[in-house]
Each structure stands twice: as structure tokens, then as C-alpha cells.
Amino acid sequence: MIQLTHTPIDFAALTESVRSTQAGAVVLFLGTVREMTQGRQTVALDYDAYPEMAEAKLKELEAEARARWPVIEAGIVHRLGHLELGDVSVAVAVSCPHRHQAFDAGRFLIDRLKEVVPIWKKENWSDGSTEWVHPGTGEAAELSG
């Protein structure tokens, strides 16, 4: 299951949805909103997406994972909008016959998601400023809060 949502992610239901009697292993990855980044304090994150392309890319990643590992079921849900500290921003659940496959497939999905899926986070720093996170652009990109 692939989903973008503006409401809190029910990761227990997502995990349950990938369970199968064919699977000996279920792996769940959660991305959560972290308070400290290189000494700076986050108070919230805002996530934006290009929804059509993001959903298409997530489906491609699922298909690629299924081609590489014996995935029984996979589910990826990404939250959009305003998230507070500790909120779950992304959940990836994978079931496979054996644990190494499930860990590898799950890691592949979250690693590739962060590289190719058009979703962006904006930091809301504790000093009141905001800043889009755009890896590799090599500048502070600081905007007035």
C-alpha cells in the first residue's frame, strides 16, 4: 500500500496489513520528527510534496523491492503538512520469508525514498526562522520566520 496523508499515520494498522502466513519476518521503519540537528533546535517540520509524482515514484520503489527481494507485502505511508516533535513522518512496513530479506528491502525502500521521491521538509527552528531542507544545495537557504 502506498499512501500520502495529512493525518497521523496508523503504523500499527500498516504493520498488521503486511503480516502474512507466508512471512517469517515483518520489519517496520518509522521516521520521526527529531528535536536536535547539528546543535540547532527544531520545534516543528512542514512537509510538502508533488503528490502525483511522489505516489508514482513510491510505486516504482515498491516494484523494484519486489524484483530484488521475495517481498510478501509492503506498505509505505508518508505524512504531509505540519508535524510536531516526535510525530511519525513516514512508515515503511515489509514482510518477507526471512529477516535479512525484510531488513534489506525495508532499508532499500526508506533510503531510496529519501533520494528520489519528491517530498520536502521545512525546518521550523526554535529561533523562529524557517528553512527548506534541500540536500546538496550548499547554502543556508534561510528565510525569515
Binding site: 521516521g31 512537509y47 510534496a49 508533488y50 509524482m53 511522489a54 508518508h78 513522518s89 513516514v90 526508506i110 525514498l113 529519501k114 533520494e115 528520489v116 521521491v117 519528491p118 517530498i119 520536502w120 521538509k121 527548506w132 531542507v133 534541500h134 540536500p135 546538496g136 544545495t137
Partner: peptide, 10 residues
């Protein structure tokens, strides 16, 4: 078409 900076989901 769409134009955007490097992605940062997750």
C-alpha cells in the same frame, strides 16, 4: 513539467 530542489522526505 515540474521543477524543484533536491528532495528531503522521510
Amino acid at each position: 513539467l515540474a521543477v524543484f530542489p533536491p528532495v528531503s522526505g522521510g
